[in-house]
Design a protein around this nucleic acid. Sequence first.
DNA 1: ATTGACTTTAACCTTAGGGGAAGGTATACA
DNA 2: TGTATACCTTCCCCTAAGGTTAAAGTCAAT
Lengths: 273, 273
Amino acid sequence: MFTIGMFSKINRITTKTLRHYDELGLLKPEYIDEFTGYRYYTTNQLMQLHRIITLKQMGLSLSDIKEILNNPRAIDLFLKLKEQDVLKSIEAEKAKLLQIRSYLSCIKGENPKMYTPIIKELPEVIVASMRQVVEGYDVFFDLVPNVMGKEMKRVGCECAVPEYCFNIYHDGEYKEKDIDVEICEAVTEMKEDTNILKFKKIDKVPAAICILHKGSYNKLGEAYAFAFNWIKDNNYEVVGDPRESFIDGIWNKESEEDWLTEIQVPIRMKVNE
Amino acid sequence: MFTIGMFSKINRITTKTLRHYDELGLLKPEYIDEFTGYRYYTTNQLMQLHRIITLKQMGLSLSDIKEILNNPRAIDLFLKLKEQDVLKSIEAEKAKLLQIRSYLSCIKGENPKMYTPIIKELPEVIVASMRQVVEGYDVFFDLVPNVMGKEMKRVGCECAVPEYCFNIYHDGEYKEKDIDVEICEAVTEMKEDTNILKFKKIDKVPAAICILHKGSYNKLGEAYAFAFNWIKDNNYEVVGDPRESFIDGIWNKESEEDWLTEIQVPIRMKVNE
DNA sequence: ATTGACTTTAACCTTAGGGGAAGGTATACA
DNA sequence: TGTATACCTTCCCCTAAGGTTAAAGTCAAT
């Protein structure tokens, strides 16, 4: 018969933990004094405790362990599930590591501008889109409000809330002139296509790296470069057309310095090793 | 101006999280209505939120992130510490994985007897020890009480509590006869060495794999075999003499089936990779 | 004016115990 | 027999990062 303190010393485990296991019904003492409430353990509990600790070292939760103790045949199932969990968490930790190192190497370099890449999901969305080859970037300032905006109003379609307006560039490379661009605006419902506007539903993107760019559009190239480097460094690959989402611009901010744009590149973790 | 719901949709983050960050002083809304308490965000908060999410994706805690936001020069330090953390947790997850797989392969085999290996620390201890070459295992039943026990009583040394009595085998291999064994018993203080008893302090062992063996001693070999296999499978190496700790035996249990012995092998994670 | 969508605070929940307080108990010692 | 000390009990609050209701107040449209 050991008191809880002795038993804890023998097993290098705290009394608090033993009480906790008692409370959870995981490991009951051999005998509890009826009047004092003192817990008394014997070597009979040693085996059970070893079993609990083994399973805990494998990363199982106490409730899983309890189920296993009640139904030992389930251990296979639990361990196989846990194996997958552990594999996933190794991947997750490795991704963190890459991200940290990519950041550290970036601030070590002379690069003064730091971007803050985040991974998020892009929800399914219905868009009104207009694809065209335009002469240069300046054309947008006229094209979007005067052509696209008016046509949308004409066919009576409403912008979604929150507003979501983005460009997709269909040229494989960066161009200054004759840019093949698709301007998309999220709307509440599909309408009949017109000569100018095409409607389509764009599927949810499970993961996209998103980086915010503040300032005029002529520096967007740097942001793209950063994004693609980040994707390479962090072992991702591009799985869809990059979007350039307009948050603040000439329509609501006077100073170019306040313009805000988000680049969104659909990605997927590379599966190679 | 966005309400909290809008802002949460834009950023694919819950309102609860935004409120939480507000509470923590991590991300304050641009403006809070004095009378209704409504929070209103603007695009000014987007940058800050991106920064927070970036750091969170690297695994930093919100309190670390808060410190970084208050003192951006500290980011290097935090990230370097976090890098070490992440490396450690990758190692820990890999160890779990090995342990799970070792267990799974073991129950898949025909091995009916499952041991439950646990890793624990062995504390520093003062022992009275007696080293001898004995003819066979049976000798212990006489040797320990009648020679060692009596000598200990003669020199007046007290056993430690909890009791801790173990053997160390000094033969490199398993032997049935002429076994070079050191019998150790934890005591409360050092005494003068005698012809029979030698006193020494044994250092703490940071990690030992411990497995319980129930039953008579002639099956201990299997337990050892299991232990050494486990060590190999789980990428550990032996860094000290194995101990055989006697918990229940002939002195307190009549039936051999109830005898309980713990094998403790000092180990260290292998550093290769 | 009413409805429905949205917001507020507040309180409790999650893991695996840690820390401490208030009070009862066991045992050695005087 | 009394007491000092070590040990035990239950009870309550705490962790991190929010999730999940609930009650009540607010906004915008009908």
